[in-house]
Design a protein around this nucleic acid. Structure first.
Length: 311
RNA sequence: GGACGGGUGGGUGAGUGGCUAAAACCAGCAGACUGUAAAUCUGCCGCUCCUUGCGGGCUACGGAGGUUCGAAUCCUCCCCCGUCCA
């Protein structure tokens, strides 16, 4: 037994049943859910981001959802701060925090911390983006190579997004990315963390993904997108980059989205799931369970891990 | 029945004598990723062997023959698809 609070993390690819398992465990252990998902922090984008409707939350409080408006910028650092606040609050009320994680970067930001690097600067980014527009990503990569050779070596010449971030750090902090990273970061303190990973068979996961996309469409995803447009959410708002949203946005005149659009969304979701799997595979100390979060054997096994934890 | 056009690797599709296991794109597979992360990017992608190399062998551009040192590319016949004329 220790005086550390405990934190249960359930991680896995999209549609693996993290939410179902989280809710089930929460109900049995007086838990509350912290959602670690970069898309669900956006308000009004509900169906396509697979937010759990209130009615299906079965009385279990859910946090870290609907934090910002569509036009706002949200970052891993901001997530970390908000998550720590929620964790503290849950701890003080003596509840059991259960984090359901689909966004690997955010999970790492919370658990391991972030280096002491400057936050993004929109003005600087606009300028750098203009350079890329005018002279191509390789040009910016050459500039980075001059300012921070180590970072330039690590980042692909066409990876504009990462090149810009490295440039931003170098310019704003006056230090190279590597230097800042080597100065360390401080992870989440005061918690005993147990991680459960869901890894259902790939073919069955893909079947579920396809079925879930169909269900989202049936649940009125296209209408949600229509409302977002009517609401005045601009096409370049961040959440319109999320899987499916821009495809459906271009289809709003057509009523029901055609089959090929639905297939495209399913395909993009499958590829996304693969990227999540690749990321989570490297996550240390995960108790992997080879099924879905609503499989009874998985629930039983997960309960063991939850019970083993000191209260 | 006749006249054209066309049949290329999982898909679309370039290639019209050697530099072509065959562009490009898509799909697929694998991977990277410390502040946009459902994002962004990278590699592989006919089969096979090994001493894993700008390595060897085999198979491949509808089918069968042929021309040629050499053919997806030229010729002959056949099959199939599309359009048009009967």
């Amino acid at each position: 037994m220790s005086d550390l609070a405990r934190l249960l993390v359930i991680l896995g690819p999209t549609a693996s049943g993290k939410s179902a398992l989280g809710i089930e465990l929460a109900r049995q252990h007086g838990g509350e859910i912290l959602v670690c998902d970069s898309t669900q922090v956006y308000r009004h984008f509900d169906i396509g981001t697979a937010k759990i409707p209130l009615a299906e939350q079965r009385g279990v409080p859910h946090y870290l959802v609907d934090l910002v408006e569509p036009q706002e910028v949200f970052t891993a650092g901001e997530f970390r701060r908000r998550a720590q606040d929620v964790l503290e609050d849950v701890r003080q009320r003596g509840k059991f925090p259960i984090l359901t994680a689909g966004t690997g970067l955010y999970l790492r930001a919370l658990l391991e911390g972030l280096a002491d690097a400057p936050t993004r600067s929109e003005e600087l980014r606009d300028r750098l983006r203009a350079k890329v527009q005018a002279r191509g990503p390789e040009h910016l990569h050459r500039l980075l190579n001059r300012l921070d050779r180590e970072a330039a070596t690590r980042i692909a010449p066409r990876d504009t997004q990462k090149i810009i971030r490295a440039m931003e750090i170098r310019i704003l902090a006056g230090k190279a990315v590597g230097e800042i990273h080597r100065s360390g970061r401080s992870g989440l303190a005061g918690y005993t963390v147990t991680k459960i990973g869901l890894s259902p068979p790939r073919d069955r996961l893909y079947e579920r993904i396809d079925a879930r996309v169909n269900a989202m469409i049936a649940a009125g995803w296209a209408d949600e997108v229509r409302r977002l447009v009517e609401m005045g959410v601009p096409a370049d708002a961040k959440p319109f980059q999320f899987i499916g949203y821009s495809d459906l946005r271009s289809q709003i005149a057509n009523g029901r989205p055609p089959a090929e659009v639905v297939e495209k969304i399913q395909q993009a979701t499958r590829r996304f799931a693969k990227r999540q799997i690749t990321w989570f595979r490297k996550e240390p100390d995960v108790h992997w369970l080879a099924g879905f979060g609503d499989d009874t054997e998985v629930i039983t096994a997960a309960l063991q891990f939850a019970r083993v934890l000191p209260v």
